[in-house]
Design a protein around this nucleic acid. Sequence first.
DNA 1: TTTGGAGGGATAGATTTCCTGAGTCTCCGT
DNA 2: ACGGAGACTCAGGAAATCTATCCCTCCAAA
Lengths: 201, 201
Amino acid sequence: MTYRLPSLNALRAFEAAARNLSFKTAASELGVTPGAVSQQVKKLEASLGVALFSRLPHGLLLTVEGETYLPKISKIFEDLTDATEAIAPEINGKKFKLGICPKAMAILPPNWPNQLGKLKAHVRDAIQTTDVELLRNNEIDCLIRLGGGPYGELSLVTVERGEDTNEASVPLHFICKPGLADCRQSRAILEDLAANAAPCS
Amino acid sequence: MTYRLPSLNALRAFEAAARNLSFKTAASELGVTPGAVSQQVKKLEASLGVALFSRLPHGLLLTVEGETYLPKISKIFEDLTDATEAIAPEINGKKFKLGICPKAMAILPPNWPNQLGKLKAHVRDAIQTTDVELLRNNEIDCLIRLGGGPYGELSLVTVERGEDTNEASVPLHFICKPGLADCRQSRAILEDLAANAAPCS
DNA sequence: TTTGGAGGGATAGATTTCCTGAGTCTCCGT
DNA sequence: ACGGAGACTCAGGAAATCTATCCCTCCAAA
């Protein structure tokens, strides 16, 4: 019962590219460069011995094989996500407790994150703190701060908030345990932060 | 429509290890060292935040989460294999040319593999040879030998054929290019060999 | 016809991930 | 006590992957 399988990275690249019919869009969805997507798709096609895309002079088109493959691969990714969330509720289903430092609060909307919106599905509540130890204790799941650090083995993501024209401006940081950096909740929070934080001063 | 996915390598390591309840067996199935399997499984557990195995003093046991995860992951690999075979006939549908050494013929049924049966779907024909070079030239797809080796970067699978009570008995080997070791054809041939080869003398 | 933007393809080099190989440990059977 | 089996760790090297460029084609606007 062994399996002969293409690489997962290559499949992800294919799936995103096929869904968007664009390497560029797929790349930004996956957080890599278009060249990487192009390479992965090419590798997949080589390993299968079948072309999945027709490269037209202007844009992409799925071949018959690609058209057949796409829905199956999408479904497999969904199944995998479901299976994974089923056993890792700690990570995938849990609502986050946030820690926010006072200075960060100042550049966020008045009662963020307690607004109606997508964030409600991912955030339980928020407390005001600057204490990184609370992260290590699991008393909070992530910490939102202005500047600070370093944070050792903790993951740190800098929130995008427009053109930084002021050299002295302090970056807005999202800090969490490494295992949580890429999870659904963190992504939602980061997205919301990017949309709602005041631009760099 | 993005997905949060564990690494495929880690999932394969988990699936093989869970199915065999042994890192060592899983490692030989995957063609890597036990250390690699151990590391991949550990990585997967870390990324999920859940233990999948109980490491007992003597041997492995699946945790509840592992027990839940295993059948779903196995099914996903099957689905992926099916989806891939459906669009890549060049690789997956081809019938193999076998090379068989005379000594190996002696322990196989008189006109193996030219019998009616499942093998017909996977085998084009067979020639008598011991020449490994034919494998490298792609003139044959796999070679069945008694003993011999080493074969460098070629994949070697030892055929199971009952209790080996005789220390001097020579193992029956299936040799092919690494990329073909896990394909449907190889699996069918190995299964048939295991069923039809004379037991160890 | 020229020009500029968008998007895909290729390549080299850097980075990350992965695997190996050796050594260690515990448990078990003799 | 001893040796074998199997899992773990860690350092180092191999392999896969990504980035950063540069090139090319096509299209649309001037």
